[in-house]
Simulated assay, not measured.
Amino acid sequence: MKKYELSFAVVASVITIAFLLVVNLITSTAHLWFIYPAFVILFWPVSLYSLKKGKHKQFSILCSLLLIAFLVVMNYINTPEYPWVIFGLFPILWWPILVLLGDRAKTIQVALIGSSSIILYYICLNIIMGAQHPWVIYPAFVVLWWPLAVYHGQRKSYFAFSIQASILISVFFITVNAITSPQAIWAIYPIFCVLWWPLSMYYFVYKKKAGI
């Protein structure tokens, strides 16, 4: 039975997508809604083939290409006048890149190269697509956690991680506050909450180990 699982998945996926396409065209041609379930259904045979064969690298490549193709189609159908798909292309490509790197993907060097390239990518997009607001600070804030977590995770320096992470969060909120609403100083409220992280790490971990 197992040797027929892939064939069944392919045939069932094709029949289901064809059925949804016919229903879509019969009920309404103004909106091609069948694309959304079809996108999810296609992961069935792709996942079954790749994971069953142990081809994790091929799985990441195929799924990345499938996701990119879906976003391109959605962009073209819904808003062809604005190429929003480019905002997600580069981060998606890092999925197969990290899988292909294998154990090297866990190194701090890869984390630094990956985070720096992604931030540079969004800086360029920010300048080209909308320089009136520096929205690049939001993806940059998220991506900076990558090398920070890898560095301290390898060294098990969790207390130092809590301090540096708290500084990163505080700088982020201060920057957002200064850019979006400088007339109201609201950044102090989340910063106050964040400061409890390193404080709790110090008193409940280090003091406990010291027997104090």
Rank of each mutant, 00 (worst) to 15 (best):
E5N: 15
E5V: 15
L6Y: 13
L6M: 15
S7K: 15
F8W: 15
V11P: 14
V11M: 14
V14M: 15
I15L: 00
I15M: 00
T16Y: 04
A18T: 00
F19Y: 12
L20M: 10
S28E: 12
H31Q: 06
H31D: 03
W33C: 00
W33R: 01
F34W: 00
F34R: 12
I35K: 03
Y36E: 12
P37A: 04
I41C: 10
F43N: 09
P45G: 00
P45V: 09
V46L: 10
S47E: 11
S47Y: 02
L48A: 05
S50K: 09
K52P: 01
K53Y: 05
G54C: 04
K55R: 11
K55G: 06
H56V: 06
H56N: 04
F59W: 04
F59R: 03
S60R: 03
S60Q: 04
S60P: 08
L67S: 04
L67A: 11
I68H: 01
I68F: 04
L71M: 02
I77G: 10
N78H: 06
P80F: 05
E81C: 07
W84E: 00
V85T: 02
L89Q: 04
P91R: 01
W95I: 06
W95D: 12
P96I: 05
L98T: 06
V99S: 06
V99W: 03
L101Y: 09
L101N: 05
G102H: 05
R104V: 11
R104D: 14
A105G: 14
A105C: 06
A105R: 02
I108C: 05
I108P: 01
Q109N: 14
Q109I: 13
Q109C: 10
V110A: 06
G114Y: 05
G114H: 05
S116R: 10
S117M: 13
I118H: 13
I118W: 11
L120K: 12
Y121A: 08
Y122G: 00
Y122A: 07
C124L: 13
N126T: 00
I128K: 12
Q132D: 15
P134Y: 03
V136A: 12
Y138C: 10
L144M: 11
P147T: 07
L148P: 03
L148V: 10
A149H: 03
A149P: 03
H152A: 13
Y158G: 13
A160S: 09
F161M: 10
I163T: 05
Q164T: 11
S166A: 12
S166Q: 01
S166G: 09
I167L: 00
I167C: 12
L168K: 01
L168R: 08
I169S: 01
I169M: 08
S170N: 02
S170Y: 03
V171S: 09
F173A: 09
N177Q: 05
N177P: 04
A178V: 09
A178Q: 00
I179A: 01
T180M: 07
S181A: 02
P182R: 13
Q183Y: 05
I188N: 12
P190W: 13
P190I: 03
I191M: 07
Y203E: 06
Y203A: 08
F204Y: 15
K208M: 08
